[in-house]
Simulated scan of single mutants.
Amino acid sequence: MIYRWMGTYPELPSHVLETGEDLQDVLDKYPDELIGKTVAQRFNHTKLPYLPKVLSIAKALPLQLHPNKHLASKLHQKNPKQFTDPNHKPEIALALGDFEAFCGFKPLKDIENLMELAPLQTFMPQVEKPDFDDQTLKHVVKAMLEASEDTVRKTNDALMDLPKESFGKDTYIPDMIPRLAEQYDKADNGTLVALVTMNYLQLKQGESIYIPADGIHAYLSGDIIECMARSNNVLNTGFCPRAHRDSVDMFTSCLTFTPHDRKECMLPSQSFSKSKSGKSQLYAPPLSEFSMYATTLANGESDTIGKIGGPSIMIVTEGEGTLRADAKDYKLSAGYIFFVGQGTEIDIKASKALKAFTAYAE
């Protein structure tokens, strides 16, 4: 995996290219002009409330969740070296091409049907035919995460020996076990949790998913733009060495069961009212820290983005062109990153088919 976020987080902060200044130092000098009073008052600081980044994923990232604000604050106080801030970390992932991910849980009925397979019965509560609700699911997830390497390996072998039709609509499960085992190990507990209980998503370019705080997920492959609230807190529990995993009790205690269907994972794009040519699409997750818009221009096309009442960060991923702001022109090219102060109208013009992604708060 290759990534670097853009923003003012103390680890890997962004700097101004021309001067070498830490971006946060510049924002502190001109908070009203660059951040704006509305955003500064909402978050009670002049730091950027979001962190966008580009991810290029070649193998499954750890099975993880990001703790909610209450737990993050407690973890930060107890272990600030590992949990470096007291904030939550909801996020979106926007596909730049084909992208695979495990996200949230499948509908309960679908999981219940899979759990009737003989190799999986050992992970069910030892009571007579329980109602399969979220608490039953939590028991199943915890049992899978606590299982020994030998149990996980034998379960995966047994699942691969079953006829494909045994898996109903989830026939990808036996085919994906060897793939995940090659990346990590057939004894990795994450394989069972991800394949049996979680939604497997295959996204195309321009599609996006939303991960709420405490939402279970693992990115599998592809290139994405990710944007998250200002935090670097994470709990890992699979698709990584056992020594790198956090407490199973802690992980399962803060699990939420939203989303509970693949449709609930998706974050559809919508028209962006500030895009005057309609060449930019909005991705607006249900949180206050950020939204994102994606600009797609063919050769010679342009778009004007009206004034936004807060700070923005733009990254160009394809093409070339110009950005005009405050009567000054700036070159655009793949890999270029711009900070745009609040209340600034910008004009984007492509000399070569161009794509840019902009995170903002207002």
Rank of each mutant, 00 (worst) to 15 (best):
T296W: 02
K274A: 14
G310W: 06
D261R: 05
F290D: 00
I305C: 08
F290M: 01
I315V: 15
A294F: 01
E301C: 05
S253G: 11
Q270N: 11
M314A: 13
S312C: 13
G310L: 10
H260L: 13
S273M: 10
T258E: 15
S312V: 04
G321N: 05
G321Q: 10
S288D: 15
T295V: 11
S273Y: 10
T252L: 09
Y283L: 11
V248T: 13
K307A: 14
V316T: 14
S288C: 11
S288M: 12
F290K: 00
Y283S: 02
L282C: 06
E289W: 01
T295K: 06
E289Q: 10
S280G: 08
S273K: 11
S277H: 13
G319H: 05
E320K: 11
D303N: 08
M314E: 14
G309W: 04
M314N: 12
Y293K: 01
P286R: 04
V316L: 12
Q281M: 15
P268N: 08
L282D: 07
L255D: 08
D303V: 07
G306T: 06
G300A: 02
F272Q: 06
L255Q: 11
T322V: 09
T256F: 01
T256N: 15
L287T: 00
Q281F: 12
F272P: 02
L297P: 01
K276H: 07
S302G: 01
P311D: 05
K279E: 03
E318D: 04
S269M: 09
Y293P: 04
T258S: 10
L267G: 05
A298V: 05
M292E: 10
A284H: 07
I315Y: 08
E301N: 01
S277E: 15
P268R: 09
V316N: 02
D249S: 12
Y283G: 00
P311I: 05
E289L: 03
G278R: 06
T322S: 14
Q281E: 15
P311K: 03
S288W: 13
K263A: 13
T256R: 09
V248K: 00
K279V: 04
A284E: 14
A298S: 12
T304C: 02
R262G: 07
A298Y: 06
V248N: 02
K263D: 15
F272V: 13
Y293V: 01
I308T: 11
C265Q: 04
C265H: 06
G306D: 09
V248Y: 01
L297S: 02
G300E: 02
G306K: 03
T322W: 06
I305H: 03
S291Y: 03
P259D: 03
N299M: 11
P311M: 05
E320N: 04
E301F: 02
F290Y: 08
E320Q: 09
P286I: 12
S275Q: 05
E301D: 11
P311A: 10
P311Q: 04
T256V: 15
